[in-house]
Nucleic acid binder design. Sequence first.
DNA 1: CTCAATATACTCACTCGATGAGTATATCAG
DNA 2: CTGATATACTCATCGAGTGAGTATATTGAG
Lengths: 179, 179
Amino acid sequence: MSNLSPEFALLGLLAEGPSHGYDLHQRLVTDLGHVWHLSQSQAYAILKRLEMRGDVKSHTMEQEKLPARQKLQLTPQGRRRFQEWLDGGAASNARSIRLEFLTRLYFAQKYEPEKVADIYAAQFDQVWVSIQRLTSLLAHLPPEQEYNRLSLDLRLRQMHLICEWLDEIKTKFQIEVPA
Amino acid sequence: MSNLSPEFALLGLLAEGPSHGYDLHQRLVTDLGHVWHLSQSQAYAILKRLEMRGDVKSHTMEQEKLPARQKLQLTPQGRRRFQEWLDGGAASNARSIRLEFLTRLYFAQKYEPEKVADIYAAQFDQVWVSIQRLTSLLAHLPPEQEYNRLSLDLRLRQMHLICEWLDEIKTKFQIEVPA
DNA sequence: CTCAATATACTCACTCGATGAGTATATCAG
DNA sequence: CTGATATACTCATCGAGTGAGTATATTGAG
């Protein structure tokens, strides 16, 4: 379930309209290149998998001059998967929050700005759950486990840091959080 | 080069003396289970790869009752690789600092406590390099790249956080840092 | 004008990370 | 005596990620 590849980012770009591998990769790199690091070959690999799953279908387009393109478009199933991902569960560790939450925010802002507040709230809640989990783990950790303690301690601090970061995002995006 | 598997942790445990897969996995889980998350099958897979590389050699030991063990021991090459890793370059992103730096610290403390200060210093320097790199990237980022900015911004803050964390480690471990 | 760099467009082979289930026996506690 | 837990390892499969290769077109600098 946990998704640490830009699979849904690619689906999201396709949700804007049909396109092809080269272009999708380019757009992902320019818009979210410091979020996801995606090589061209990896982009093609993911798209191929999406096609095999039935989230995308392809159609060869010959061109006069340059090499043929595989025009890709979302299937209804693919669109549904993307929607479910966008509305669905928030990430729970530092890295995947950076990747997934920012990606959700990007697409929500683009396609359904009214959902931004919900996505934000879900992520904030999830961070609190993580903080509680880590705090409890730390509390029950035998004192001799020094390195495990240091690791958990850093993870907990990262979660607190993310709280601050989310708070500034709230301001920047003028998100109204419901009570 | 970048190592995000507990490959060297396993080599390190073997540096203490010959052992076998089941035991190595157990020890890694108890000592560093909140640093690395390693399934049993993944442990065996890594050990197999180390054997194929020639870092480890194995030797079947029949037992009276329980299933046979593959007794594993470091080859001179394996020992050299571990040493090079221990003395070598420090990690440069949040996750791999947590994983690799803590692992280096663990083994340095165990086998060569006099090296702890060097490892610490190398990591601290590397964090500063990362801070500079991220700061520069942020400074040159076109203003419209909102999501890339947020991502870099979080990464930069994480590096500052790691500085504080390292500072407390310095105190806890009573590390004397050379000028 | 020409030649090299860059852009368009995609493919392939390979290694490594990760999960989950399976196999088989031994011991121990209720 | 029976079922959970411990010992010890295997296998199949998937997905992440790299690096190189292929082939043509356009652009720009000397």
